[in-house]
Simulated scan of single mutants.
Amino acid sequence: MPVYTVHAPRANGVDFRATDRFMFVRDGFHFWAMLLGPLWLIWNRLWLALVGWVIAVIAIELVLAKLGAGTAAIFLAELVVALLMGFEAASLQRWTLSRRNWRQLDIVVADDEEAAERKFFDRWTKQRPPGNDPLSVDRGAPPPTRQVPGQPFSKPPPLPQGGIIGLFPEPGGTR
């Protein structure tokens, strides 16, 4: 079964108003990214990855041509780059989303993207009741401190009846 990672924009906060912008990125091999690497990068608006791909391919071809490699070796190198693009396409998408200040919310295992959406939103709505924004939750009063009288931590706990704590008797006593 395919694994999907769910990403949300950090700027809007994670609430029900931003659900139409959530991205589901399928992990695994992307055939079209292997076959049409630069077009796939343009289609998914991975501009920095496209620049890196162009630089890498040109550098590999120049180095192999400088070394006197034949066309078969250059073709094999381009084939390896295409396979790497197919295997790492999802990682490039996640990397670009994290650079754009998106955060990963969850990982979902489902048959297809629609089932992944259903499974994620079922789980997400059960965890967060409507109107609950986890970024602005009131946590209540400040934590208790030892310096404020009347707080639960103001007084140390009483010593046990025998006056012995753990394995050691009173400090400075005989052994």
Rank of each mutant, 00 (worst) to 15 (best):
L67D: 13
F168W: 04
R17L: 14
A116Q: 02
D27S: 13
A49V: 09
M1P: 07
G13V: 15
L167T: 07
L48H: 11
D106H: 04
R139W: 05
L84A: 03
L83M: 01
P129S: 04
L41H: 05
K155C: 01
W53S: 08
L39T: 11
L159F: 09
V137P: 01
F168I: 07
F153I: 03
R94Y: 04
Q147S: 13
A141I: 07
W43D: 14
R99N: 03
L48D: 12
D111K: 11
F87G: 00
S136V: 10
W124H: 12
V81P: 00
E114W: 07
E78F: 03
Y4N: 02
P160G: 08
E78T: 01
G13R: 15
L36V: 13
A59E: 10
W32R: 10
W40D: 09
W95L: 08
W40C: 06
G52Q: 12
V108C: 02
H30G: 02
P129K: 03
L67E: 15
A69N: 11
V25R: 00
L92Q: 03
P38G: 13
I42F: 12
A69D: 10
G13Y: 13
A65G: 14
P171T: 07
R17Y: 15
L97W: 05
P142G: 05
R45S: 14
H30D: 12
G13E: 13
H7W: 15
Q127N: 06
P142F: 04
P129E: 01
T145H: 06
L159G: 03
T5W: 05
I60A: 14
R99T: 02
S91E: 10
D133Y: 06
P38N: 15
A90W: 02
M85N: 02
W43S: 10
R123P: 01
F24S: 04
A11W: 10
K119I: 13
E117I: 11
W32K: 08
Q93D: 01
F120E: 03
N132H: 09
R118L: 11
Q127C: 06
G13D: 13
F75T: 09
R21S: 13
L135A: 03
A89R: 00
S91I: 05
R175E: 11
L84D: 00
E88A: 06
T5Q: 15
E88G: 07
A56Y: 07
A116F: 00
F121V: 03
V14K: 12
G163S: 03
R94F: 05
S91K: 11
L50R: 03
V14R: 10
M23D: 08
A82H: 02
N132V: 13
G37L: 13
E114V: 13
E113Q: 13
R118H: 11
A56H: 08
D138M: 04
F87Y: 06
P156A: 12
W43A: 10
E117G: 12
N12F: 10
R99C: 05
R100P: 00
I60H: 08
A18H: 12
I55F: 09
L67S: 14
R139N: 04
P169A: 04
P129H: 02
H7R: 05
G131L: 06
A33T: 06
N12E: 12
P169S: 08
V57P: 05
A90N: 06
F121W: 14
P152H: 00
V25I: 14
L48F: 11
T96L: 06
W53K: 09
L159M: 07
G162C: 03
R118D: 10
